[in-house]
Structure formats: structure tokens, C-alpha cells
Amino acid sequence: MNRLRAQSWLFAGTVLLAMLLQLMPLPAPLLQIKPYWLALVLIYWAIETPDRVGLGFAFLLGLAGDVLAGQLLGEHALRLTVLAFIVLRFRARLRFFPVWQQTLAVFALLLNDRIVVMMVRGFSGEAMPPAAFWLSPPVGAALWPFVFILLDDLRARLRGREA
């Protein structure tokens, strides 16, 4: 019971932290390459605890992202739902990949996400983003091993302490 609660706190904490990081200010040259933190955290939890993270959760998280970012309502929701679907589909394989293969998979996921953004922006008649727009996926993928190992370690510690 206690363990579950600690896990829930960790889960909620990481989601909140991802939102804050998404809003966090950066020096201007770094702004364009800000990784999609919500996606990284969502991917982790979808791989590890799919009973907690389904499409519905991804959709709600996306709506929260939309409200925070003040863009088109539903844009983040669409992006994260697509992402969660792909992760859950290939979860059995993703879980047992070594970290470098996972990183490649995350890169592909983030790239796909950018394409979805392009489509949404295209349909809503907005200006196409500049070239630096494509720098975010490599940065996100490069951060993935750290996110993954850090969160895994935190979870293992929680588990060890309660046991």
C-alpha cells in the first residue's frame, strides 16, 4: 500500500516537473531546441507502467499542456495520444531494448511528433516553423538515457526502501 503511494507520488511529481520544465525559460539560442519534456516523461511511464498510462491519460496530459501553452486546444492532446499509442503498441519490444536502441526509438518517436505538429500547423494555416524546429528531437533523444536511468533508479530505490 505504502509502496504504491510512494510510486504515485513519484509519478505525479515527474509529470508536474515535466510541465514546469516545458515552461522553463532558457537563453534565446537554446529556446528552439527545448526538448519535449512531456513526451519524454510520458514515454517512460507508458513503457514502465502501462496500467497507469493509457491513451486516456495521454489525452488528458495533452489537454493540460494545451491549456498551459495557450495554443490550439487539442494540439498537444493529439500529439501525445499518437505518441502513447505507438509506445504502447511496441511496448513489449521497447522494454527489453538496450538503452541505445531505446534512444533511437525515442528519436524516431519525437521526429514523428514534429511531423504531426507540422501537419496541425499546416491545416490551421499557420506559418511553417524555422529550421531550428527540427533540432528538438535529437536533443530530446540525447536526454532520454539520463531520464530513463534517473527515473529507473528512483523507482528502484523506492522499491528497495519499502521492501
Binding site: 502501462p50 486516456g56 489525452f59 492532446a77 495520444t81 499509442f85 503498441r89 490551421s124
Partner: peptide, 27 residues
């Protein structure tokens, strides 16, 4: 959890939201 049907439902919901918001600025 990741059945295609649910995916379609959520995607449709997102698209409908986007269209409504694009028209009416409910956000």
C-alpha cells in the same frame, strides 16, 4: 490498452477540439 478503436476515438476528439477552438477560440 492501445486498441486501434480507442486511438481513433481519442484522435477524433482531439481533431474536433482543434477545429472548434480554431473557429471559436474556446481555449
Amino acid at each position: 490498452a492501445a486498441s486501434t478503436l480507442r486511438l481513433i476515438v481519442y484522435l477524433a476528439a482531439a481533431v474536433v477540439l482543434m477545429i472548434l477552438d480554431h473557429r471559436g477560440h474556446y481555449l
